[in-house]
């Protein structure tokens, strides 16, 4: 273009959005949308609980003299993973998509793509962690409770093998929390990033 435009005197500054502010925004958002956040966390929790229950059964059943075929155990684990995965991804996608317009708006107010991602990923991380940890313990307690009711405590924690079994249970719990956090964050990242890169579209979005 003409040189007149080139030598503009405007100095361009920069956006600052420290992680502490992103964290504060998330906490406020979860606090004030508590019911919505709770529903998301519960649906994560239920999926994870189901997953851990099924996994724990694979440890418990052989101890009480029932040895289901390997293929059957695998199938159950895969189904549990799918059910829980689909549940988490769905509820996370929903909770971010509902907020497309908010993303478009904060882009107009000065948020960068990084700020948007920070806000939504921290929130997903918190919900994934909360739902994952509570869900994993709930699922484990359910499995242990049901089977010790039926076969006695010895079926769940067989004498002499308690440490090994306990380690297995812990592995399932850790696995489940990992899955929960990973899926929550990935499922939130996709729509948050998309909306952030297409603010005009995000602003047009009506629920």
């Amino acid at each position: 273009m003409s040189s007149k435009e080139e030598d503009s005197s405007m100095e361009i500054g920069s956006i600052s959005f420290p992680v502490t502010e992103a964290f504060r925004y998330c906490v406020e958002s979860i606090r004030k949308r508590f019911t919505r956040a709770l529903i998301t966390a519960i649906s994560i929790l239920l999926g994870i609980a189901f997953y851990v229950t099924i996994r724990s059964m694979n440890t418990i059943l052989p101890n009480v003299g029932q040895q289901p075929p390997q293929a059957y155990q695998m199938l159950m684990a895969i189904i549990a993973l799918l059910v829980c995965g689909v549940g988490i991804v769905n509820s996370m996608l929903m909770s971010v998509t509902e907020r497309y317009k908010e993303i478009g708006t904060i882009k107009c107010l000065g948020a960068t793509d990084t700020s948007v991602l920070e806000i939504f990923l921290i929130e997903a991380l918190l919900l994934g962690l909360l739902g994952g940890v509570i869900g994993a313990f709930a699922g484990w307690i359910a499995a242990v409770g049901i089977f010790s009711f039926q076969f006695g405590i010895g079926g769940v924690f067989p004498a002499g093998k308690t440490a090994i079994v306990m380690l297995q249970y812990l592995r399932y719990i850790a696995e489940a929390v990992g899955i929960s956090v990973f899926l929550s964050v990935v499922a939130a990242a996709y729509p948050a990033f998309y909306a952030s890169r297409h603010p005009a579209e995000a602003l047009r979005y009506e629920i």
């Binding site: 361009i12 920069s14 956006i15 882009k107 107009c108 107010l109 000065g110 960068t112």
Partner: peptide, 10 residues
């Protein structure tokens, strides 16, 4: 895009 964000903001 960072400068664009600043422009929108300020």
């Amino acid at each position: 895009s960072k400068s664009m964000a600043w422009l929108r903001c300020r």
